[in-house]
Write a protein that binds this DNA or RNA. Structure first.
Lengths: 211, 211
DNA sequence: AACTCCTTGTAACAATGGTTACACAGGCTT
DNA sequence: AAGCCTGTGTAACCATTGTTACAAGGAGTT
């Protein structure tokens, strides 16, 4: 696992820290769709992403979902981190968006390293920063954008995360993640198709106007 | 200033740290309405709240606003912190909601203390945690609640922050902070009044059904 | 009292998004 | 081919929110 760690985190951490991570961390490969964290669960370790992507979702009391953001290579989940330190339950759900490789690090070590390694500390702070910025972006989308814009942004984001202009999703799934109904998504997708921004296929959408 | 610091932060920090804060920090009293931070500004110091409250707002390109959350005694602004460490511009606007006392601490010190004081480190992490949770709450409100629920929540939050069941605000101001129009707010307030949850006065709203 | 400014009330209408209901198409199994 | 399941298209309708326009009230000033 050490070479994969070095590849993704070598520019951030010194060898000593990489070595420690290698020793206490557990390497995992998750298939697409695998649920890492469920709302209400206690969390015992923290993921360091090597490859693939994780989507982070919020849910309300009625079970309505909303996509918050994606984690990619070099990211960690500050929300997890936050919950760990506070010993609180997870407020979010995390699901592998793609086949994903990552290293799970026990919380205890994580705290120890914050005191021990400056680079780790910076990494943790930067992670918090990134997550805050992504939350802001999520808020912007919901608060200021209309559904058709949100939909297009959603598709572009998916294209970026998966590196594939074909978004393999059903209208119903999109509806869940944007917290709206399938009918609305079908309607708006049809419009986007008329505008030449996408092409609708069965079980997948081709994004044409990426930018 | 040391006694005010001790009062608000004595249970968190050791005397040595309190002493340091006392030496490098600047004590400030801000009148209600004072703008601490504007979007796009660079930030050079970090606020530690002693008393009063700060409201934190987000704005989109068209100048439309949205209230994110309040900071109160014992809080600091993780967003500020985040921007400091990353040397990026502020993504938010911060305005004194009440007459407010606080201590401004230069960034440099702040970073130094993260390495030096365990208690400070914990404080900073906890602050990040709290801010993330408040962002989640904001997202929940916008994504899952209808405008009348959001309005009632807004009023209850104001009551809590100001410790006053009279909310001294115009309908227009509320409309700005919830990112809707004055007419909508007037309409929904009238409804809430009919339901006996509030009483509408000129320039202020009496919240009856607090819980 | 007359005037002015700010705030609130209200009606009428438009736009967006949510709901229900149903038809139909594609792909798979039997 | 017949049957089935899932996914998509579409119409009709409703609810919520946003917009425009105007009336009127409260408070202070002249």
């Amino acid at each position: 696992m050490i070479q994969e760690l070095t590849q993704s985190y070598g520019h951030l951490f010194e060898n000593e820290l990489l070595e420690e991570i290698n020793q206490v961390g557990t390497f995992k490969e998750l298939p697409e769709g695998f649920k890492l964290i469920e709302i209400g669960e206690y969390i015992k370790s923290m993921p360091l992403l090597i490859s693939g992507a994780i989507k982070v979702l919020r849910e309300d009391q009625d079970g309505d979902e909303l996509l918050l953001y994606f984690l990619e290579r070099g990211d960690t989940c500050a929300m997890t981190l936050s919950c760990c330190l506070g010993q609180t339950k997870s407020e979010i759900r995390a699901i592998a968006e793609l086949d994903t490789k990552l290293v799970m690090v026990p919380i205890r070590k994580m705290e120890e390293w914050v005191g021990k390694y400056r680079t780790w500390r910076n990494f943790v702070f930067e992670s918090y920063h990134n997550r805050l910025m992504e939350m802001l972006e999520a808020i912007d989308s919901i608060a200021f954008m209309k559904m058709d814009e949100r939909l297009l942004k959603y598709l572009h984001d998916k294209v970026k995360v998966t590196s594939d202009i074909m978004v393999h999703t059903t209208h119903q799934e999109i509806a869940y993640e944007l917290h709206t109904s399938r009918v609305v998504i079908s309607r708006l997708l049809k419009n986007l198709e008329k505008l030449g921004k996408i092409k609708i296929h069965r079980n997948k959408i081709e994004v044409i106007d990426r930018h």
